[in-house]
Write a protein that binds this DNA or RNA. Structure first.
Length: 554
RNA sequence: GGGCGUGUGGCCUAGUCUGGACAGGGCGGCAGCCUCCUAAGCUGUAGGUCGGGGGUUCAAAUCCCCCCACGCCCGCCA
């Protein structure tokens, strides 16, 4: 409803001013919508903006498409206020299942996220990628797109060769109960120490990489076992985080099926291509000073070449390609896009996020300096369990544990997704363990409260008489949900949904504080129950988009 | 050195692309609210040169230029 009204006013404004895309903003505290377009016209007409605002307002009042909308001027500003009919239809829409889901779009989207090297567990930096990516995938689906989520398994890089070397040369058997990814990290860290101590090992690593590229069966098995063990651990962590991948795509497949070789052959025909032992592209016309190396002088391909092959494959099977990558991939991502465009293939849209570091400095798997996602989940869950026990000792053990798990994931996911991706952050235990305002649990709590009220209310007939300030504010915010989904998908900004969810919970809590629902009578009671139900539904849909459980009780 | 990003009250953060009506929140501080629908809640209050300096504009946190600080990148690594 909000979206429709927004567009209606925009059209009327365009007609009244002759400006094709007039700026129409949220009216904030002044109105539902507002425009300062009079300034723009004042310049062209050489007359005072206040006068022009009044003229435009007069024209708009005569526009039949704006019936039911109050149009007022305040100096140079024109304010638009919607009426009760708008509130009724908005709340009515919000009562429907799957509220906020947009019309089905054509085409398929492939979204790649996480894709961490399988040389150690996912840490608090990696899961920023996971959570941004998974939320984006949910957003795209909510916005009516068909989405396939992929994890690109880097199974033939140097790091994996080091792990493989460690597995065959070091005594590092898996301990009882040790997760595969943590085991792999232990071996990886130990192997790196050995290499530091004895650089003579480096040629052995190089040899492993050549053998795996050639398809030597024994080396392939060695690599594959190490990678599989790590991946097995990743899958457990990802499931705990409620992040789902539809497919794990192995990098080495693009070497084995010949795609990488075909790509290199195509590249050879480009005028930007140079071969002097190594094979590389000169992308200086594209603004890149550095050589873009695709094959080493020993004949092995580098990551960039395999990634190009992967993207060509994605481009041929999907209509839109989205990658979520860390800021350290900005350069190589831009080179990838430039190259794909040069050879006439579909290029991905890349969502970059800045780094997460620890108070003592940046994280490093190799140095064993990181806070693993598993450790984070465990600690936050423990803390959540404490909190549930404190508040709800009436619940049985199983229920308390289930709630604690949901609350913990809510806290972690929300804590990460609420920050815009371009901001680098420092991991902070205190904030990670905070379940108060501006947190996932805070929003879950609002939902649980709404559920509790509805549970106690029993049956009721929907009604739509909203008169109190907090009722109107809440209903208006509910109306914005589809608009928020549209904007978040359009701008690839999942944090807009996080902000919206928090605002919705805020408004519901204020309403809850000031307007009794169950104790009110007649039409007021019915209207408030209707509003609670619409809020509950909208909160649940919002939480679902954020990958957070909408708890019924907590 | 070059490129990209960030800089908003003691701390964290929204707003910056698409310039406009007192720069929104939260944490922490202070003062209040549970015989009343879950207090993981609500209300009030103090706290701001929007990194600094120029410029454009009727209007700049927002656009342009210079500078400073921090992060990331600049590998025949991924």
């Amino acid at each position: 409803m909000y979206l429709e009204i927004y567009e209606t006013i925009e059209r009327a404004l365009a007609a009244a001013t002759g400006i094709p895309h007039p700026t129409l903003t949220d009216g904030g505290i002044h109105a539902d919508f507002a425009t300062a377009i009079s300034f723009e016209r004042a310049k062209a007409l050489h007359r005072p903006p206040v006068q022009i605002a009044e003229e435009i307002a007069t024209a708009l009042r005569a526009d039949s498409s704006l019936e039911g909308i109050t149009i007022e001027t305040k100096g140079p500003y024109i304010n638009f206020q919607t009426g009760p009919a708008f509130l009724k239809s908005s709340v009515e829409a919000a009562l429907q299942p799957a509220y906020g889901t947009l019309l089905m779009k054509g085409g398929r989207v492939v979204l790649e996220h996480t894709s961490a090297n399988p040389n150690g567990p996912l840490h608090v930096g990696h899961i920023r990628n996971t959570i941004i990516g998974d939320t984006l995938a949910r957003l795209f689906r909510k916005a009516g797109y068909r989405v396939e989520v992929q994890y690109y398994v880097n199974d033939m890089g140097r790091q994996i060769a080091i792990v493989a070397w460690g597995f065959s040369h070091l005594d590092g058997a898996r301990k009882d109960g040790e997760k595969g990814d943590h085991h792999v990290a232990r071996v990886y860290i130990a192997a790196n120490r050995e290499i530091e101590r004895d650089p003579g090992i480096v040629p052995e690593i190089d040899l492993l990489m050549q053998q795996v590229e050639k398809g030597d069966p024994k080396t392939e098995v060695l690599f594959r076992n190490a990678v599989s063990e790590c991946l097995e651990g990743f899958k457990v962590t990802l499931a705990l985080l409620s992040a789902r991948h539809d497919r794990f795509v192995w990098e080495s497949d693009f070497v084995r099926n010949g795609d990488t070789e075909r790509l290199l052959n195509r590249v050879r025909r480009m005028e930007e291509c140079h071969e002097d032992g190594k094979l590389w592209l000169d992308l200086s016309n594209e603004g890149f000073e550095k050589e873009y190396i695709l094959r080493r002088s020993d004949g092995t391909s580098v990551y960039a070449a395999r990634d190009l092959a992967y993207h060509i494959w994605k481009g041929r099977n999907f209509d839109r390609l989205i990658d979520v990558l860390g800021a350290d991939h900005k350069l190589i991502g831009a080179q990838l896009i430039a190259t794909l465009k040069l050879i006439g293939e579909k290029a991905p849209e890349i969502v970059h996020f800045e780094f997460v570091s620890l108070p003592e400095g940046s994280m490093s798997t190799r140095a064993g300096k990181f806070v693993s996602a598993d450790e984070l989940i465990e600690e936050v869950t423990r803390r959540a369990y404490e909190e549930v026990t404190l508040r709800r000792d009436d619940l049985d053990e199983n229920t308390k544990q289930e709630i604690a798990r949901s609350v913990a994931i809510a806290a972690i996911r929300y804590d990460i997704v609420k920050i815009s991706p371009e901001k680098s952050t420092v991991f902070n235990w205190k904030e990670a363990l905070d379940f108060e305002r501006q947190s996932g649990p805070y929003i879950q709590y609002a939902h649980a409260r709404a559920c509790s009220i509805l549970d106690k209310a029993g049956g009721f007939d929907p009604a739509f008489e909203f008169t109190m300030e907090s009722e109107i504010a809440l209903a208006k915010h509910i109306a914005k949900f589809p608009f928020v989904i549209r904007n978040a998908v359009q701008d690839l900004k999942p944090h807009l949904v996080a902000t919206y969810a928090r605002e919705l919970a805020d408004l519901f809590n204020v309403f809850y504080q000031f307007e009794p629902v169950l104790k009110s009578k007649g039409g007021t009671r019915q209207s408030r129950l209707t509003l609670v139900k619409a809020t509950k539904n909208t909160l649940a849909e919002t939480l679902g988009t954020l990958g957070i459980d909408a708890l019924v009780t907590m």
